[in-house]
């Protein structure tokens, strides 16, 4: 199976990756009248509802609606991409049993499609900022760094899930449960300041909270602790490297389980 290194193989099949990603997006956009608008429906809807419910509770948070959407968009990308990636190998099994394609192409195309969707979704942020009166001058360098970390972290988690879910097909459901807990353990819809004293360590051990810290630093103008960018880069790429290596170590065993 080893025709060149795994990276070289992925490069040779990059067109395949893009076509699969483009297909996933075009199916998503083509199959409904509203198309792309639907993918904004969830984050915007969440934002509106939460603002109505919580803007009094979290009155201390300036521009609460903007705070929420800067958290919900990256979280939506992470959770959707990783869940879809978990299923990606099984979904591709008719192809993987018949054509020689590096299997990494399938989870990678899922993450790519969702990432493109996230980038498009970010374009509504200036509108939300205008509507809520939040600052609309993002720091683009920090935003790019946050997005790169988010992509690497999501990619690593997606590769792990895709590989493991082939052997144990309920891993996906375990992970959905974990995601639910993870969502509430992460300061997405609430500010860190509402955490009680005995839980204040929670965001510090939560990789997604660190990525959000960068994201909000870039978009929302909150203070980013010195060292946070470096820390984010370090753990995001570690997760990616671990996912990549585990995926390729297990790859030889995939066929029997497809």
């Amino acid at each position: 199976m080893q025709r060149g290194t795994s990276l070289a193989r992925l490069a040779r099949f990059s067109d395949c990756l893009w076509l699969l990603a483009a297909r996933a997006l075009s199916v998503r956009y083509r199959r409904s009248v509203l198309g792309f608008a639907w993918t904004l429906f969830y984050p915007l809807g969440t934002m509106v509802i939460l603002s109505l419910v919580f803007s009094q509770v979290f009155a201390g948070v300036g521009h609460y609606a903007f705070y929420v959407i800067t958290g919900v968009l990256p979280w939506g990308f992470f959770s959707l991409a990783s869940i879809q990636a978990a299923d990606s190998l099984l979904a591709a099994s008719p192809v993987l049993r018949k054509v020689y394609v590096p299997s990494v192409v399938f989870p990678a195309s899922v993450v790519t499609a969702n990432f493109v969707n996230l980038l498009l979704s970010l374009l509504v942020l200036p509108l939300v900022a205008l509507a809520t009166g939040a600052q609309a001058l993002p720091s683009f360098g920090l935003l790019a760094l946050a997005l790169v970390c988010l992509l690497a972290f999501t990619g690593g988690v997606s590769l792990l899930l895709a590989a493991v879910n082939l052997f144990f097909q309920d891993v996906r459901y375990f992970f959905e449960g974990i995601l639910l807990l993870w969502f509430y353990a992460t300061p997405i819809v609430y500010p860190v300041s509402v955490l009680p004293e005995h839980l204040s360590w929670l965001p510090a051990i939560n990789p997604f909270a660190w990525i959000l810290l960068l994201m909000r630093g870039a978009l929302y103008g909150s203070v980013v602790p010195v060292g946070a960018p470096l820390l984010c880069v370090a753990f995001s790429f570690s997760v990616l490297a671990i996912g990549w290596m585990l995926f390729h170590r297990l790859e030889r065993r995939f066929y029997a389980w497809l």
């Binding site: 040779r12 099949f13 395949c16 076509l19 699969l20 297909r23 192809v95 018949k98």
Partner: peptide
């Protein structure tokens, strides 16, 4: 390439799209 019945084709896509996708799958 392995030519077998329906190899690598996505039946939801058009013939044109499949030519490009299958071509890409062949590298």
């Amino acid at each position: 390439p392995l030519v077998e019945m329906g190899a690598g084709f996505d039946v939801e896509l058009t013939g044109r799209e499949n030519v490009f996708l299958y071509g890409a799958m062949l590298g």
